[in-house]
Design a protein around this nucleic acid. Structure first.
Lengths: 193, 193
DNA sequence: GCCGTCCTAGAAAGATCGTTCTATTCGCGA
DNA sequence: TCGCGAATAGAACGATCTTTCTAGGACGGC
């Protein structure tokens, strides 16, 4: 029986990574947040911190990609999906007291210098989310040739705006950036839509 | 006599922050990279790690803003300045083996959770750079009402694309994103330029 | 020539981190 | 009922990090 402990470790790790980054996240904090003793962590993840972080990041990347796909599919327009996407992060930041950023983007800054496994996990997670956005845009009339490049831009702007919003303790960067993304997608859609 | 030691500490701190983030940067590494003994660090920065990092981040923010202002002023078009800006980061990443990201953006992810002073330093640095880009865009015909919002978007996209490029070990995200920024600025300029 | 100040120099302390190790407990099949 | 593996539980260890402390050297004013 796959106990819920492993799942719980992955979940709290994602949250801690989003708040403190890879180096700032301590395994003691993980065990406490998961309500598990220290030893259990190494039972479920013999690879230690690297494996825990990489597993959590990949997991969140897949879940995020699924959410994005569903979001675009369930929206009347790509603009509505983009606004919902950026609003999600604005809400998340504000409700956490501007502490919990993106669970992929935050460790992506300081993880790769310590662990190649973490770098690959971030790469995988970001690629999944870019693909999801690209598919969502293509489904709303963005030409195939433009969807991939535009999705990369959207995700870069999303991560960067989340970083700025966190530092400024204001959702303004996310609000401003999403408007630009809306214009960009609209232009790409009407160009040959 | 203001010895060059303090300046050297700030310089190597900026570089280490860009590579390893705030938590990943050790004071021992700073002293070694600066060619100074351990004690000297606390002589020049009695506030310890927080003060060192905050000082280095603010310093880099001001220098970056100055460079951006000069870059836009010296370019024939805003598009050329944008490309030079993104190319700078692509070159920097590639030449460092995809290890040295932005000296402001990298600590901005994991610094604020540990230190309010670092958060404020990142806020100041980002604001300086946004203002510089906004001024540069306005100087090239972007309407005043749009320049600030567009500059925020450009910087968010820049930071996010740098993050993605580092993780992917490829300049593709920067290359793709800058093209979108060029289109965006061009549209804003011809709208009411 | 002497002294106070700035800077260099590195040892020591105290805390924390990641990892490893050894029990103990729980749950299910034989 | 017994036994075996999975999971829990936490102590112990070595390494590292930040901070503090003491001491030595350079240099200019008196």
């Amino acid at each position: 029986m796959a106990s819920g402990s492993k799942e719980r470790i992955a979940a709290v790790t994602g949250e801690l990574l989003a708040r403190r980054g890879y180096n700032g996240m301590g395994l003691k904090a993980v065990s406490e947040a998961a309500g598990l003793p220290f030893g259990s962590i190494y039972h479920h993840f013999p690879g230690g911190k690297e494996e825990i972080a990489a597993h959590a990041i990949v997991r969140i990347g897949r879940a995020g990609a699924d959410s994005l796909t569903a979001l675009f599919a369930g929206s009347d327009s790509p603009e509505a999906a983009l606004r919902a996407m950026f609003d999600f992060m604005a809400d998340r930041l504000e409700r956490s007291g501007w502490e919990a950023g993106c669970s992929v983007g935050t460790p992506a800054q300081d993880g790769p210098s310590d662990s190649e496994a973490v770098r690959q996990a971030c790469d995988d997670a970001l690629a999944c989310m870019v693909d999801a956005v690209a598919g969502g845009l293509a489904g709303h009339g963005v030409p195939e040739g433009r969807a991939a490049g535009l999705a990369t831009t959207v995700l870069a702007a999303y991560e960067g705006a989340a970083l700025m919003a966190r530092v400024q303790r204001s959702s303004a960067p996310l609000d401003r950036t999403v408007e630009a993304m809306v214009r960009l997608v609209d232009a790409a859609r009407t160009a040959r839509g």
